[in-house]
Design a protein around this nucleic acid. Structure first.
Lengths: 152, 152
DNA sequence: CAGAAAGGTCAAAAAGAGTGACCTTGTTTC
DNA sequence: GAAACAAGGTCACTCTTTTTGACCTTTCTG
């Protein structure tokens, strides 16, 4: 879907100032509430904008440990990787998983309540994932930024 | 803030099923809407839960390129790092930034509309950040998972 | 057991979302 | 240039939810 300027303005405002009413959003983007609402609907149907939701802060919720880990796979056959990816999806402690170009196959962001818990997750969930050859963990010391604001 | 079981149930349900009304949320967590609402308020005031907001999908919004990059710093004095972190905060293409233990100092997630744009971001924004010594980029090939659901 | 803390119920006000009808304006197409 | 469209604007209104307040009941706790 092609975004025009009003669409981008809407995207900017809903990201920077959630909690505006449709009328306020319209005012902030130079539209009135009706067409503004119609556009937002369209953006949602196009999958560009999610439904409105709450975000839970891992740290505040007691998940003090955030790690990134790099996986290398033993097999690189398409069906094996698909199996791995489906399995990763089901591990709740894994928040993000991207496949990478370069020397590592996957990058995972994993949260845990403690180092001990992380250890358990690695042993019980991650190493059990199909075809994982090696796991290289980097602990995060500090979250400097964790934004979901796309600079549209 | 210490979370009890009803709190955790609320956190689980609002993450798994956004869009429930307060009454439905209450029903799903075994509370009635009033106390449920009061708890959710408390969780928000405690910073555990954000206000309700839309999430924009980078890919759907035209940001096809998602990269992770690893930075190494020239200086490790406290005030220099603070300056760097404040500067990173202001680069809109950087969605995430964590400081890491181990051989790299920082991990950044950066989005861009194209490889060419990414190149620009690196040259104009990232390399301009104070004390950056080296940048090591890993392009992502595929997003397997990008969840914000904390397994409370 | 007394009090405090939290939940339940009810009722109601206020706010916002979501619609629909219809008019106006700017553009594109013949 | 006229007709046909595509969008936006305005209005009026309905319906849901949220948000509150009052008050009673149940559960813990010291």
């Amino acid at each position: 879907m092609q975004l025009d300027e009003p669409d981008r303005r809407i995207l900017r405002v809903i990201q920077e100032r959630p909690g505006l009413t449709m009328r306020e959003l319209g005012a902030a983007t130079g539209l009135s509430h009706s067409p503004c609402w119609r556009r937002l609907q369209r953006l949602q149907q196009a999958g560009i904008v999610s439904e409105k939701r709450y975000i839970v802060d891992p740290e505040a919720a007691g998940f003090e440990i955030v790690v990134f880990c790099f996986l290398r796979m033993a097999e690189h056959r398409r069906d094996r990787l698909a199996a791995f990816e489906a399995a990763v999806e089901r591990v709740p402690e894994v928040l993000q998983c991207y496949s990478l170009s370069g020397e590592h196959d996957y990058l995972l962001q994993v949260v845990a309540r403690s180092v001990r818990d992380y250890e358990q997750t690695v042993k019980n969930a991650l190493l059990e994932l199909p075809d994982v050859q090696s796991i290289n963990t980097s602990f995060t010391l500090k979250r400097i930024k964790d934004s979901r604001v796309i600079p549209v």
